[in-house]
Simulated assay, not measured.
Amino acid sequence: MSVPQLPLALRTPPDQRLDSFIDAPAGALAQLQALAQVPGADWLYLSAAHGAGKTHLALAACASAGEAGRAAAYLPLQAARGHAQQALDGLEGNALVVLDGLQAIAGERSDEIALFDFYNRARAAGIGVLYTASDLPDEIGLLLPDLRSRLGQCARIVLRALDDAGRAALLRDRAARRGLALEDAAVDWMLARTAREPARMVELIERLDRASLAAQRRVTVPFLRQVLAGEG
């Protein structure tokens, strides 16, 4: 069985930047920017439930490193499960390495050993590392105590899910970035009747932007009903 080409080549969407993240914990964006752009900054361990924005910040950190002229690599560990050693080999040439979704390799002993070895090599090489996971190191099912201990030494950022005010701010922000005007009634309608995950909400704004441009209409509640009914 062939091994996928990893890490991924990065072409981050323009929405996935540090300054476009809504309702980050105090100081979190500054920590991520420092890790991305400043040699020797604290390594970070970012945890959150599904849909809270881990991958947004993972890719945003890579984009921030690129803006500073620093090489970055992004590795989704779900895609590397069972062959993490091959995926991690050769990453020492980067200034920043982002390992997204640690829980995906938890319980795979060979993958955990490979990650432990990479941790030590990256420390020695002065590489910045950002880990993301669904929970804290002791809670995701890792087998190796030494790996849990190393991960526990990272500075931690814990994301919380957006409340309705945060979701409304996300809708307005993504619409404004596209020059799309949203009536307050349209925002309220979407909050009450559409998917609540941020990624799905962003997809909805993208669809509405295309539909609004094609129809040359503002996004009102009747237009929302029409667009969503047509796609249903």
Rank of each mutant, 00 (worst) to 15 (best):
A199D: 12
A176P: 03
A104Y: 08
A58V: 06
L32H: 00
V158I: 13
A52H: 10
L142V: 10
L142Y: 06
R225P: 00
C154M: 00
L32P: 02
A186N: 12
A175I: 04
A124K: 11
V187Y: 14
D209I: 03
L143P: 09
D164F: 02
P198S: 15
A48T: 12
R200F: 13
L32T: 00
A133Y: 09
I127D: 07
A49R: 12
E206K: 13
R172H: 09
E231D: 11
D163H: 02
A34P: 02
L130C: 11
F21N: 01
L151K: 00
R109K: 12
A229E: 14
L162Y: 01
A48K: 10
A168C: 04
S149K: 12
D184Y: 11
C62D: 08
I113Y: 06
G230W: 05
L88S: 09
Q31F: 03
P4T: 05
R156C: 00
A95T: 08
R160V: 09
H83Y: 04
D135S: 13
D138V: 15
G51Y: 09
L191T: 01
R121M: 06
A169G: 08
T12Q: 13
G101H: 08
L102S: 11
R217P: 04
T132Y: 09
A122K: 05
P222G: 01
A186E: 10
R218G: 00
D135K: 11
A48Y: 07
E92Y: 10
E139L: 15
F223P: 00
A34F: 02
I22L: 02
Q78S: 15
N120C: 07
V3N: 11
Q216N: 14
A169C: 03
Q226C: 05
P7M: 06
E92K: 12
